[in-house]
Computed example of a mutant assay.
Amino acid sequence: MKIGFTLPQAGNVAWQAPQAARYARELEQLGADSLWVIDRLLSPVNPTLGHNGGEDFPAEFRAVLDPFVLLAVAATATERVLIGSNVLNAPWYPPALLARALTSLDVLSGGRLAPGFGVGWSPDEFEAVNVPMSERGARLDETLDVLDQLWTADPAEYRGKHWTLPATRAALKPTRRPPIYLAAFAPASMRRVATRADGWLPALVPPRTTDIETAVTKPWALIRAMAEDAGRDPDELDVILRIYPSVRSGTAVTEVVELIKRVEAESEVRHVLVDLMYLADDVDQMLDLAAGVLSSAHP
């Protein structure tokens, strides 16, 4: 089982940004397989929609570092680990700008970028970027089209309903075409994974959500069937599971490791990422928790 972790990006650790490079290096030395960023723009005072069905946003989101900057730090501080986004809210970004940033990150890392995209869910954040939330799915589809053009064609050109790319020279390409992962739970989103993506990003939130069959196994089987129906080889699709432990306790590491072992035994998942930012007050505590997970899961 490959195990990755989020970078120190949100909450108290955001104030320790100068420690991000050390964190990335030490985690790579400890044996981590991947490093990840989130994409959170606001912490609304009076949210139109609360986080994960709640009434508010977690306090950690009141201070959040930029995901692209952190990925650049991780890319230059490490040599082996995969670097990824968990997830970028793709409809917020003009795809030409997104392609430039992602291409730069892939070149900086020597071909280690795994961009994960989502459609976003916060009406307040869509208002802040002046993008209609009702268009988010269609904008993501067109973003994938533009990325494909800029990563494979020269000249590259695209004209859609929401995004336009005038014919342009596009000489700088990623080291290899970055595999695109999508977070998806609704049927339409899962079909997008099956027909357009390279992989899927399901999620578990222990202790609230630990049902592997419901959250991972059954949807993954559906995605694979959709891929086959679309003429794709389902074995070419990858899956990376996101684990968000949300309750601080002295047994948090043990609980995460037990869940990882269950995932390995009960599903086809062979790569997980663990978000430790809700459990730690500083970068060193995040490192200690990650070291505990790695040493217990890989004795």
Rank of each mutant, 00 (worst) to 15 (best):
residue 1 M to N: 03
residue 2 K to I: 01
residue 3 I to K: 07
residue 4 G to Q: 15
residue 5 F to Y: 13
residue 9 Q to S: 14
residue 11 G to M: 09
residue 11 G to T: 08
residue 17 A to L: 03
residue 19 Q to H: 15
residue 20 A to Q: 12
residue 22 R to Q: 12
residue 23 Y to T: 09
residue 23 Y to E: 01
residue 28 E to Q: 13
residue 29 Q to N: 14
residue 31 G to Q: 06
residue 32 A to C: 12
residue 33 D to Y: 04
residue 34 S to K: 09
residue 36 W to K: 07
residue 39 D to V: 06
residue 40 R to K: 14
residue 43 S to W: 14
residue 43 S to T: 14
residue 45 V to Q: 15
residue 45 V to Y: 09
residue 45 V to M: 10
residue 50 G to M: 05
residue 51 H to S: 06
residue 53 G to K: 00
residue 54 G to L: 00
residue 58 P to G: 05
residue 62 R to M: 08
residue 64 V to G: 07
residue 64 V to I: 12
residue 67 P to W: 09
residue 72 A to M: 02
residue 75 A to F: 07
residue 76 T to Y: 02
residue 76 T to H: 07
residue 77 A to F: 13
residue 80 R to I: 00
residue 80 R to A: 00
residue 83 I to D: 08
residue 87 V to T: 12
residue 89 N to E: 02
residue 89 N to D: 00
residue 90 A to H: 11
residue 91 P to K: 13
residue 91 P to Q: 10
residue 92 W to G: 05
residue 93 Y to M: 06
residue 94 P to W: 08
residue 96 A to C: 04
residue 96 A to I: 15
residue 96 A to F: 06
residue 97 L to G: 07
residue 101 A to N: 08
residue 102 L to D: 02
residue 103 T to L: 09
residue 105 L to C: 10
residue 110 G to K: 11
residue 114 A to V: 15
residue 115 P to E: 04
residue 116 G to F: 04
residue 117 F to C: 03
residue 122 S to L: 09
residue 125 E to W: 14
residue 130 N to G: 04
residue 132 P to L: 05
residue 139 R to C: 09
residue 143 T to Y: 04
residue 145 D to T: 08
residue 145 D to H: 09
residue 146 V to S: 05
residue 149 Q to N: 10
residue 151 W to I: 11
residue 153 A to N: 14
residue 154 D to C: 08
residue 157 E to D: 00
residue 158 Y to W: 10
residue 158 Y to M: 08
residue 161 K to A: 15
residue 162 H to G: 09
residue 163 W to L: 05
residue 168 T to C: 15
residue 169 R to N: 11
residue 174 P to R: 09
residue 177 R to H: 05
residue 182 L to R: 01
residue 191 R to G: 00
residue 191 R to P: 01
residue 192 R to G: 01
residue 193 V to L: 01
residue 196 R to P: 03
residue 199 G to P: 07
residue 200 W to L: 01
residue 202 P to T: 05
residue 202 P to H: 07
residue 203 A to L: 03
residue 204 L to A: 05
residue 207 P to E: 12
residue 208 R to M: 13
residue 209 T to I: 14
residue 215 A to G: 00
residue 216 V to N: 03
residue 222 L to N: 10
residue 228 E to Y: 06
residue 229 D to C: 01
residue 230 A to H: 14
residue 230 A to W: 11
residue 231 G to P: 12
residue 232 R to E: 11
residue 233 D to A: 06
residue 236 E to A: 14
residue 240 I to Y: 01
residue 248 R to V: 13
residue 249 S to T: 15
residue 250 G to Q: 13
residue 251 T to D: 15
residue 253 V to W: 13
residue 254 T to F: 09
residue 256 V to D: 04
residue 258 E to W: 00
residue 266 E to H: 09
residue 268 E to H: 05
residue 269 V to C: 02
residue 269 V to M: 02
residue 270 R to Y: 04
residue 272 V to P: 03
residue 272 V to A: 12
residue 274 V to I: 08
residue 276 L to R: 06
residue 278 Y to E: 12
residue 279 L to G: 11
residue 281 D to V: 00
residue 281 D to T: 10
residue 282 D to A: 06
residue 286 M to Q: 15
residue 287 L to T: 10
residue 288 D to S: 14
residue 293 V to H: 02
residue 293 V to K: 07
residue 294 L to V: 00
residue 297 A to H: 15
residue 298 H to V: 13
residue 298 H to F: 00
residue 298 H to K: 14
